[in-house]
Simulated assay, not measured.
Amino acid sequence: PQVKVNFVPVDHCIELRRADGSMDNRCDGCLFYRDTIIFVELKQRKGKGNQWIKDGEQQLRSTIGYFEQQEEARNFPIKKAYIANSEKPLFRTGQAVRMERFFSETNYILRIENRINIE
């Protein structure tokens, strides 16, 4: 069955400001359908290491923090976050601890892969 998926751009479209008035980190956008919301940060892997994962996680945490203060957050019992990287398509199993910590602190399931599953 087909599912209608909505996309909302966040970065460069929605202003999220810190208490001091400066612009806060934002992810690239979010997808939502039925009772599911998925925040997405798109990355191009640069150099060695996993700094792109750390940066993406921070952008997702910041955006999710703002969203969870909104009434609409209650409309989505299924909450996910993706750091997607076209340069690094394989799932990073070494990031299991990071993903578990992300869920325990945000109640969002974090995935680090280049395909976003719509279920």
Results as ranks from 00 to 15, higher is better:
residue 101 R to K: 08
residue 24 D to E: 13
residue 106 T to E: 07
residue 56 G to C: 05
residue 117 N to M: 06
residue 101 R to A: 03
residue 67 F to V: 01
residue 37 I to V: 13
residue 47 G to L: 13
residue 38 I to E: 12
residue 4 K to C: 05
residue 110 L to F: 00
residue 90 L to P: 00
residue 28 D to W: 03
residue 98 R to M: 06
residue 91 F to L: 08
residue 83 I to T: 04
residue 93 T to H: 10
residue 94 G to Y: 05
residue 81 A to C: 11
residue 105 E to F: 05
residue 101 R to I: 00
residue 8 V to A: 15
residue 10 V to D: 12
residue 6 N to I: 00
residue 73 A to Q: 06
residue 21 G to F: 02
residue 19 A to V: 14
residue 103 F to T: 01
residue 43 K to H: 04
residue 116 I to P: 04
residue 38 I to Y: 04
residue 114 N to C: 01
residue 69 Q to K: 12
residue 4 K to H: 04
residue 37 I to H: 11
residue 115 R to P: 00
residue 84 A to I: 05
residue 67 F to A: 07
residue 15 E to S: 15
residue 56 G to T: 02
residue 80 K to G: 05
residue 83 I to C: 09
residue 110 L to S: 09
residue 29 G to I: 09
residue 46 K to A: 10
residue 24 D to F: 02
residue 76 F to M: 07
residue 41 E to V: 05
residue 42 L to C: 15
residue 105 E to K: 13
residue 80 K to L: 09
residue 86 S to K: 10
residue 109 I to A: 04
residue 86 S to T: 10
residue 92 R to T: 03
residue 23 M to Q: 12
residue 62 S to G: 03
residue 39 F to Q: 07
residue 114 N to Q: 09
residue 81 A to L: 07
residue 47 G to M: 14
residue 11 D to Y: 04
residue 98 R to N: 08
residue 108 Y to E: 07
residue 54 K to W: 05
residue 44 Q to W: 15
residue 92 R to Y: 05
residue 70 Q to G: 03
residue 79 K to T: 03
residue 53 I to L: 13
residue 57 E to N: 06
residue 84 A to T: 11
residue 77 P to S: 12
residue 55 D to K: 14
residue 27 C to E: 13
residue 64 I to C: 01
residue 35 D to T: 12
residue 35 D to G: 09
residue 25 N to G: 10
residue 28 D to T: 07
residue 73 A to T: 00
residue 109 I to E: 13
residue 94 G to C: 02
residue 44 Q to I: 06
residue 55 D to F: 03
residue 87 E to I: 00
residue 119 E to D: 15
residue 100 E to P: 00
residue 39 F to P: 06
residue 67 F to S: 06
residue 100 E to N: 06
residue 42 L to Q: 14
residue 10 V to F: 09
residue 71 E to H: 08
residue 29 G to Y: 07
residue 47 G to F: 13
residue 59 Q to N: 10
residue 9 P to H: 05
residue 14 I to Q: 15
residue 18 R to Q: 11
residue 114 N to S: 06
residue 94 G to A: 06
residue 40 V to P: 07
residue 56 G to H: 10
residue 95 Q to T: 07
residue 111 R to K: 10
residue 72 E to I: 02
residue 15 E to R: 15
residue 115 R to C: 03
residue 52 W to E: 07
residue 78 I to Y: 14
residue 102 F to N: 10
residue 56 G to S: 08
residue 26 R to W: 02
residue 79 K to W: 02
residue 26 R to A: 15
residue 21 G to Y: 01
residue 80 K to S: 11
residue 5 V to M: 02
residue 61 R to E: 02
residue 66 Y to H: 06
residue 76 F to N: 10
residue 25 N to T: 09
residue 22 S to L: 13
residue 10 V to C: 14
residue 61 R to T: 03
residue 18 R to V: 06
residue 6 N to L: 07
residue 46 K to Y: 12
residue 40 V to A: 09
residue 66 Y to T: 01
residue 50 N to I: 08
residue 83 I to K: 13
